Simulated assay, not measured.
Amino acid sequence: MKFNPPLQSATLLKRYKRFLADLVTQDNQQFTAHCANTGKMTGCAEPGFNAFYSTSDNPKRKYPQSLQLTQNQHGHLICVNTAVANQVVQEALENHLIKQLDGYDTLQAEVKYGQENSRIDFLLTAENAAHCYVEVKSVTLLSEEKPETGQGYFPDAKTVRGQKHLRELIEMVQQGHRAVLLFAVLHQGINTVSGASHIDAKYSELLVHAVDCGVEVYAYKAEISASHIVLAEEVPFIA
């Protein structure tokens, strides 16, 4: 996906109330931007980080600016807008960039499924092929103790919703369909992905169980800049 126009730069002062972030430009103009991220954003939103934002032309918006990227102390660019993950994955699917998910004729987003009233991010279908249910998760949590290892984790906070999604994917496999958990790595410093057992042990245990049940797990890392974000390469998932 392209940022048109390219994102503008500022310095992050603080992120608060989950959806707000105060920024200041180089010419000392301070403003509040919307932050589309419900997670803890551990290591992604420290005061003093470089920040990159877009500006909406919608006059009804209370906060016209949206925080899109930050840059940590190691120089890694991080996409903190969680809505971007599905957008870049959809583009990758449409452009046949994810080899494990190529060969389908139709792509539908936000389709209701499962016994727990869920919506799958993407449903892929083709004639004479099993349906493929694809759940997307954004990965931005880099190991705090050893960032140089490039080890990334999901989730960054306990997630009952994420546990539900794993159960739904297992159910799809049991019904004879394909079920895929796709980690979209939106942090330049992350080179491998694992379940964050130190944060949500139950999710990590369920993730291992899902793999044992036949749920496929892949991780793809994005190329990130102030002008575009695109899934560029597969990185290892280590259960």
Rank of each mutant, 00 (worst) to 15 (best):
M1A: 14
M1G: 15
F3T: 12
N4W: 07
L7D: 05
L7T: 08
S9H: 05
S9M: 02
K14I: 13
K14A: 13
K17V: 12
R18C: 14
F19W: 09
N28P: 00
C44P: 07
E46C: 05
P47I: 13
F49Q: 09
F49K: 00
F52T: 07
T55E: 13
D57I: 15
N58H: 05
S66K: 14
N72S: 13
H76P: 07
L77R: 12
L77S: 08
C79V: 15
T82G: 07
A83V: 11
V84M: 10
Q90I: 04
L93C: 02
Q100S: 11
L101D: 03
G103K: 10
T106G: 01
A109V: 02
K112V: 12
S118F: 02
S118H: 03
S118E: 12
S118A: 13
T125D: 04
E127Q: 05
A129C: 07
C132S: 08
Y133P: 03
Y133Q: 03
V136N: 05
V139H: 01
T140R: 03
L141Q: 11
P147V: 10
P147Y: 07
E148K: 10
F154H: 13
F154S: 04
A157G: 07
K158R: 14
T159G: 08
V160Y: 15
G162P: 08
H165M: 10
L169M: 12
V173F: 07
H177W: 06
H177G: 02
F183Y: 10
A184C: 15
A184I: 15
V185W: 09
L186W: 02
H187N: 11
H187C: 03
H187I: 09
G189W: 09
S194Y: 01
A201P: 00
Y203F: 15
L206G: 06
L207S: 06
L207N: 04
H209V: 11
E216Y: 01
E223S: 11
E223T: 09
S225E: 07
A226R: 03
S227N: 08
A232H: 14
E234G: 04
P236H: 04
F237T: 08
I238E: 12
I238G: 02
